[in-house]
């Protein structure tokens, strides 16, 4: 059954909510920068989902258990990314993040990073397939300069090179 969508309205009270949040973050974390996109890029999705190669991204701090964990001790956050092979057994994934409740994701990463679900949808033909790798960052980056200058362009390049038509992006 298809879900019913409604447009979410970005009104003055929501703008105030953001400003209050940003002011609180700036008080709590020195060096915080309020960086916003100056223009919104747009790549129309021109194929039906059943022909799309889908990839996955999260800011939720997911990584291979065997990989280096994200740095959650630094007051400046961690701008680096981790690669997650799309065919990995999700039991081999771990979550390193201290800014949200990931008790559920620790037990079943799919409630935040739905790799098993994407594989099932590919198997059912709902989507065309899955790109070879998914990527993850740990979203706490009060000053996103290196995230913007180093991580984001590299990820954009990889998603494009790996043939992704659509990237599903989840947060922690």
């Amino acid at each position: 059954m298809p879900a019913e969508y409604k447009d979410w309205v970005f009104d003055e009270s929501e703008k105030t909510k953001y400003q209050t949040w940003m002011d609180r973050i700036k008080t709590g974390h020195t060096g915080t920068q309020d960086v916003r996109n100056q223009r919104i890029n747009w790549t129309p999705l021109e194929k039906p989902l059943s022909q799309c190669t889908v990839s996955l991204f999260t800011t939720g701090g997911v990584h291979l258990s065997s990989d280096k964990a994200f740095d959650v001790a630094s007051a400046h956050g961690d701008w680096t990314f981790r690669q997650v092979p799309a065919n990995i057994d999700t039991a081999h994934l771990a979550v390193t993040h201290t800014h949200y409740n990931h008790v559920d994701a620790d037990r079943d990463v799919n409630c935040m990073f739905p790799l098993d679900r994407l594989r099932e949808l590919a198997g059912q033909g709902v989507i065309g397939g899955i790109a070879p790798n998914a990527y993850s960052i740990m979203g706490f980056n009060p000053d996103p300069a290196r995230l913007i200058e180093e991580t984001a362009p590299e990820l954009a390049r990889r998603y494009q090179e790996e043939g992704a038509d659509l990237v599903l992006m989840t947060c922690g």
């Binding site: 916003r36 919104i40 984001a152 990237v167 989840t170």
Partner: peptide
């Protein structure tokens, strides 16, 4: 999230993010 997403979209890959 939006900062990374916008660059991926700019590289010619469509994106959709989930937000709470």
């Amino acid at each position: 999230m939006g900062l990374v997403q916008n660059q991926i979209e700019g590289a010619g890959v469509s994106t959709i993010s989930m937000t709470v």
